[in-house]
Design a protein around this nucleic acid. Structure first.
Length: 597
RNA sequence: CGGGGCGUGGCGCAGCCUGGUAGCGCAUCUGCUUUGGGAGCAGAGGGUCGGAGGUUCGAAUCCUCUCGCCCCGACCA
């Protein structure tokens, strides 16, 4: 049993002024964490205790399907050069040199290291499948650490890697992780949703994120309230309402119209008395093409055309053209590629490259424009637009693809579903995806198949942000007085509050009760501080412990008070019954957090 | 990297514009009282005003440089 009077639990009445999100404020106020630098935090007693419980759950569940390793965080350059990520990771990687001048980095993820081990040791299909995992610190030089523990430069990640002989094996490893992740987040009391995600620069195919809805989150999720569809906005798609077709004017061919000062979509729509959906918007980018070893990276012009009322989704555009980075074009680049100024750019008269990111201009047209006719577009000439512009007839493109972001209220893309999508903010707590052959191929991992033929194992990669589980739990369960955690991840299950330490009866009753609870297997914190009752109540409400037993005035009648933090409700209980009641409550809670075998 | 803001005792802040004894609340320590929702009274300790340089008789305050932190954007397996 732990005694509050002997512990270091530095609670604060006020939060640091720069703490914005609830989890940051409360984790600091409750003495869970202290900041050391931008995106660098120390975990104090309560914080570490809670994180240890989370890690315990993760480990227990992961042991069902995988084997735990412990890998170095200090990594030599070579494996990263072999995979192409020494340059590919860019500035997000912490790099350093040793005394001999050799390049090292701090691990931000461990695909290369696991693959190095696999390459050196795995020889036969008989050794597959393998699932290897680790729970360790990761380092990322984030451009902007923020929101307390939500985006930091050092954090704890459970990451696992699967090696399979074929795609069917990978599917199985993926599904095993999916199931185990659902168990983990459920046991941690998170209200999560699994969404389709972009696989990003990691390469690979199927990709799924586990998200917890909260306004503190940095991701946007589109989901359907009717069916099960949910996707990260980087990936989400939707059904659009048909737009009324416009009648051609004159001979129906593109016609130059003077539109002085109409540089914005809203101006153009007003000028032509049309919906912005019938205006073609152009966003011009320079895209970075990453070359393989030895060759310099190169920038290429990309013109993105879409409906005037839509927004470019840069993640989709990156994936579509196969670029590593995007930036918007400068005025002189607009002149070079379009021979026209911003605000009046259009697709007619351009000469699109046959393949993306070649010498000329890559033209990408959003699918929503494909079947439209008689639209309005910029004329690549100051103060002029064209009308009667029909895609395919009047201009061509390098690629036709979905490059727009979906908006709330658009139709659910699932067949036959009539739902309207809603968009909400969420924080990512886990991510599983199928890597494919990217690392095993580039790093030369090979095994012999049953026919004695050399084959490349196929890989998957699966991550969980340990601190983010805590953060998300705090975000989803807090009020003005503090937060509460489920017993499974709370630093203590119950705090026994002796309301007046000067009263010998209360002291003895509290001590005895705490010892009993402890003996029954509960995680007990005894608040034996020589403080006024009010102080103890305020602290108890703050620090995330789900149950509190007040030992106070009614102790003389053999009664104590059981307070449930989540509901702020209390009941008087006979001293002899309180142990059974607390156990019952905790078991009921735990039942809600179980998943079928 | 672009834009904005802030660095004054452990936390939250005032003072800076208009240069002249470094202040307030909370916290801490001691004593007495108090004891069911962050107590009262009395006393005490604690600050190179982020750092460096400059202007000045004199700088927390004005100027220059620099470091750090936060927010918005960009970015983000």
């Amino acid at each position: 049993m732990q005694r509050w009077s002997k512990l270091f639990i530095p609670t604060l009445r006020e939060a640091p002024a720069d703490a914005e999100v609830a989890s940051h404020r409360f984790l600091v106020r409750s003495g869970y964490i202290r900041q050391l630098g931008a995106g660098i935090y120390s975990y104090l007693f309560l914080g570490q205790r809670s994180l240890n419980k989370i890690i315990g759950i993760v480990r227990e569940e992961m042991d069902r399907i995988g084997q735990e390793f412990y890998l170095p965080a200090l990594l030599p350059k070579e494996p990263w050069e072999q995979s192409g990520r020494w340059t590919g990771m860019g500035d997000n990687m912490f790099r350093l040199k040793d005394r001999k001048g050799a390049d090292l980095c701090l691990g931000m993820t461990h695909e290369e290291i696991m693959t190095t081990i696999a390459r050196g040791e795995l020889r036969s299909y008989k050794q597959l499948p393998q699932i290897w995992y680790q729970i360790q610190s990761k380092f990322r030089d984030e451009p902007r650490p923020k929101s307390g523990l939500l985006r930091v430069r050092q954090f704890t990640m459970k990451d696992s890697y699967s090696f399979d002989i074929d795609k069917a094996g990978l599917d199985k490893s993926f599904d095993l992780h999916d199931a185990v992740y659902r168990r983990i987040f459920t046991r941690c009391g998170l209200k999560f949703v699994a969404v389709e995600a972009d696989s990003g620069a990691m390469g690979g195919s199927q990709s799924q994120e586990f998200m917890v809805y909260t306004d503190a989150g940095e991701d946007l999720i589109a989901s359907c309230p009717v069916c099960s569809y949910a996707a990260n906005l980087e990936k989400a798609t939707s059904l659009l309402e048909p737009v009324a077709e416009m009648e051609p004017t004159g001979d129906g061919k593109p016609e130059l119209v003077s539109t002085p000062g109409c540089g914005a979509i809203s101006d153009v729509a007003a000028f032509f008395k049309i919906s912005p959906a019938s205006d073609i918007k152009c966003v011009a980018y320079m895209a970075l093409k990453r070359r393989t070893v030895g060759k310099p990276d190169t920038w290429h012009g990309v013109a993105a055309f879409l409906r005037g009322d839509h927004q470019v989704n840069e993640t989709k555009l990156l994936g579509t053209v196969g670029a590593a980075e995007l930036r918007t074009m400068q005025a002189e680049e607009l002149e070079r590629y379009f021979n026209g100024p911003a605000g009046f750019l259009g697709p007619v008269g351009l000469n699109p490259d046959a393949k993306p990111l070649e010498e000329g201009l890559t033209v990408v047209v959003d699918k929503s424009l494909d079947d439209r006719r008689n639209l309005v577009a910029g004329a690549n000439k100051l103060d002029y637009h064209l009308r009667n512009v029909t895609p395919g007839r009047d201009f061509s493109w390098t690629l036709l693809a979905e490059i727009r972001s979906v908006n709330e209220g658009e139709g659910c893309p699932k067949d036959g579903c009539k739902g309207k999508l809603v968009v909400g903010k969420a924080v990512e707590v886990g991510h599983i995806f199928k890597l494919g052959y990217k690392y095993s191929e580039s790093m030369g991992a090979r095994v012999l198949d049953p026919n004695g033929k050399e084959v490349t194992p196929i890989m998957g990669s699966y991550g969980i942000g340990i601190e983010r589980i805590l953060t998300a739990a705090v975000e989803q369960s807090n009020d003005k007085n503090g937060f509460w955690l489920p017993a499974s991840i709370a630093p203590f299950t119950v705090v026994v509050t002796i309301t007046n330490m000067t009263d010998a009866l209360l002291r003895e009753t509290g001590e005895k009760l705490a010892a009993e609870l402890e003996a029954a297997g509960l995680d007990v914190l005894l608040d034996d501080r020589d403080e006024r009752a009010g102080v103890k109540f305020k602290d108890a409400d703050l620090v995330g412990i789900p149950y509190r037993i007040n030992v106070g005035k009614k102790a003389a009648e053999g009664k104590v008070e059981l307070v449930t933090r989540a509901t702020s409700t209390s009941v008087d209980v006979a001293l002899s019954d309180v142990l059974a009641l607390v156990k019952e409550r905790v078991e009921e809670d735990a039942l809600l957090l179980t998943v079928g075998e």
